Amino acid sequence: KKKPLTQEQLEDARRLKAIYEKKKNELGLSQESVADKMGMGQSGVGALFNGINALNAYNAALLAKILKVSVEEFSP
C-alpha cells in the first residue's frame, strides 16, 4: 500500500497542475503529449498532477523543462 502524500507534496501537485492549466494552450500541450515527453502513460501524468503519486526530483525537473518554468515555481 502506498503512503499518502504529505501536505507539502499535495501543495506541490496543486501548484504544478495550476501551472500546467495556465500554460498548456500557450505551449500546445495535452496530458498525452506531456506523458509522451516523459516516457510514461497519460494516467501517470494525471496521478502526478492530481496528487495521487508523489513527484520525484527527476519527474519534477522534466516537468519544469516541458512547462518552461523552474522547479521552485511549483515545489519551493
Rank of each mutant, 00 (worst) to 15 (best):
K1E: 10
K1H: 06
K1D: 15
K1Q: 07
K1V: 09
K2W: 10
K2T: 11
K2N: 14
K2G: 13
K2H: 13
K2V: 10
K3E: 11
K3N: 12
K3A: 10
K3M: 14
K3R: 11
K3I: 14
K3W: 06
K3C: 11
P4I: 14
P4T: 15
P4N: 15
P4K: 14
L5M: 11
L5C: 08
L5S: 07
L5V: 09
L5D: 05
L5I: 11
L5G: 07
T6R: 09
T6C: 09
T6Q: 06
T6M: 08
T6D: 10
T6L: 06
Q7V: 13
E8R: 07
E8C: 08
Q9P: 02
Q9C: 01
Q9T: 01
Q9G: 06
Q9L: 01
L10A: 10
L10W: 07
E11S: 10
E11G: 05
E11N: 09
E11L: 11
E11Y: 08
E11F: 05
D12L: 06
D12W: 06
D12F: 02
D12K: 07
D12Q: 08
D12V: 10
A13C: 11
A13P: 02
A13D: 01
A13M: 06
A13Y: 00
R14N: 06
R14Q: 12
R14L: 07
R14S: 09
R14F: 07
R15W: 00
R15H: 01
R15C: 01
R15D: 00
L16D: 05
L16K: 03
K17F: 10
K17G: 03
K17P: 01
K17I: 04
K17Q: 09
A18N: 09
A18L: 11
A18T: 10
I19S: 04
I19H: 03
I19T: 07
I19G: 03
Y20V: 06
Y20R: 06
Y20M: 08
E21W: 06
E21H: 11
E21G: 04
E21N: 11
E21T: 08
K22T: 11
K22N: 11
K22I: 08
K22Y: 08
K22G: 07
K23M: 04
K23A: 03
K23V: 04
K23P: 01
K23D: 02
K23E: 02
K23C: 02
K24H: 07
N25Q: 14
N25T: 12
N25A: 13
N25E: 15
E26Q: 13
E26M: 13
E26C: 08
L27S: 05
L27N: 03
L27M: 07
L27H: 03
G28T: 06
G28D: 08
G28P: 06
G28L: 06
G28R: 10
G28Y: 04
L29W: 01
L29D: 07
L29V: 06
L29G: 01
L29E: 06
L29H: 05
L29P: 01
L29Y: 01
L29R: 02
L29M: 05
L29I: 10
S30R: 04
Q31E: 13
Q31G: 00
Q31H: 10
Q31T: 11
Q31M: 15
E32K: 14
E32S: 12
E32T: 11
E32A: 13
E32L: 11
E32H: 10
S33D: 13
S33P: 03
S33R: 13
S33L: 14
S33Q: 14
V34E: 02
V34C: 03
V34G: 01
V34M: 11
A35I: 01
A35T: 05
D36S: 13
D36R: 15
D36Q: 15
D36W: 11
D36M: 14
K37M: 15
K37E: 13
K37H: 08
K37Q: 14
K37D: 09
K37T: 10
M38Y: 00
M38T: 07
M38W: 02
M38N: 03
M38R: 03
M38L: 13
G39N: 12
G39M: 08
G39P: 00
G39T: 05
G39W: 01
G39E: 09
M40I: 14
M40T: 08
M40Q: 07
M40W: 04
G41H: 15
G41Y: 10
G41F: 09
G41T: 15
G41K: 15
G41P: 15
Q42H: 12
Q42I: 15
Q42N: 12
Q42V: 15
S43A: 15
S43G: 13
S43V: 11
S43H: 12
S43E: 15
S43R: 12
G44L: 11
G44N: 14
G44E: 15
G44T: 14
V45P: 07
V45D: 07
V45G: 02
V45Y: 01
V45E: 08
G46F: 14
G46I: 14
G46W: 15
G46K: 15
G46S: 15
G46R: 15
G46H: 15
A47S: 09
A47T: 07
A47E: 13
A47L: 10
L48V: 04
L48Q: 03
L48T: 04
L48Y: 06
L48D: 07
L48G: 03
F49N: 03
F49T: 04
F49W: 03
F49K: 05
F49G: 04
N50L: 03
N50R: 06
N50Y: 03
N50C: 07
N50V: 00
N50F: 00
N50H: 09
N50G: 08
G51Q: 00
G51T: 00
I52F: 09
I52G: 09
I52P: 03
N53S: 13
N53Y: 09
N53C: 13
N53F: 05
N53Q: 14
N53H: 13
A54W: 01
A54T: 06
A54E: 10
L55C: 01
L55N: 01
L55R: 02
N56H: 04
N56M: 00
N56R: 05
N56Y: 01
A57N: 11
A57G: 11
A57R: 14
A57Q: 14
Y58N: 15
Y58S: 14
Y58D: 15
N59I: 08
N59K: 08
N59D: 10
N59Q: 14
A60K: 08
A60E: 09
A60S: 10
A60F: 03
A60C: 03
A61I: 09
A61W: 09
A61K: 13
A61F: 07
A61N: 14
A61D: 12
A61S: 14
L62M: 14
L62N: 10
L63H: 05
L63G: 05
L63R: 05
L63V: 09
L63P: 08
L63E: 07
A64T: 04
A64W: 00
K65L: 00
K65W: 00
K65N: 11
K65M: 01
K65D: 14
K65E: 12
I66W: 03
I66A: 07
I66K: 10
I66L: 09
L67E: 11
L67N: 11
L67A: 08
L67I: 01
K68P: 07
K68F: 00
K68V: 01
K68M: 08
V69R: 04
S70L: 00
S70A: 11
S70Q: 14
S70Y: 00
S70R: 14
S70I: 00
S70E: 14
S70C: 05
V71L: 03
V71W: 02
V71G: 04
V71I: 12
V71P: 08
V71T: 08
E72V: 10
E72F: 11
E72R: 13
E72D: 14
E73P: 00
E73D: 15
E73I: 09
E73S: 09
E73G: 00
E73C: 07
E73N: 08
E73H: 05
E73Y: 01
E73V: 02
E73M: 04
F74P: 03
F74S: 04
F74M: 03
F74E: 05
S75W: 02
S75E: 01
S75V: 01
S75Q: 02
S75L: 00
P76M: 05
P76A: 02
P76L: 00
P76T: 06
P76E: 06
